[in-house]
């Protein structure tokens, strides 16, 4: 599983980089850069899901497969 951003929705609130700092950081324009590595533990998945729920733009999702 991996955390993915829909950048057509993201407006750079940056909440994911606070709630999920180990895998998300901000780029120079204030948009999240997500580590594409697999979410390989239950705590990681839990924290990723928390970021998904907290995103004010609904731009995050946890995907099980590769994106298109």
């Amino acid at each position: 599983m991996r955390l993915v951003v829909d950048f057509t929705r993201c407006r750079g609130h940056g909440i994911c980089t606070v709630l999920f700092a180990e895998r998300a950081e901000l780029d120079e324009w204030g948009f999240p850069v997500i580590d594409p590595a697999d979410l390989d533990s239950a705590p990681l998945v839990r924290r990723a899901r928390r970021a998904v729920v907290a995103c004010p733009r609904g731009a995050l999702s946890v995907e099980t497969s590769e994106p298109r």
């Binding site: 950048f7 993201c10 407006r11 750079g12 324009w29 204030g30």
Partner: peptide, 12 residues
């Protein structure tokens, strides 16, 4: 201009 990294990154 829908995606931040493209809208800000390409002009930069």
């Amino acid at each position: 201009g829908q995606c931040g990294p493209c809208a800000f990154g390409l002009p930069d």
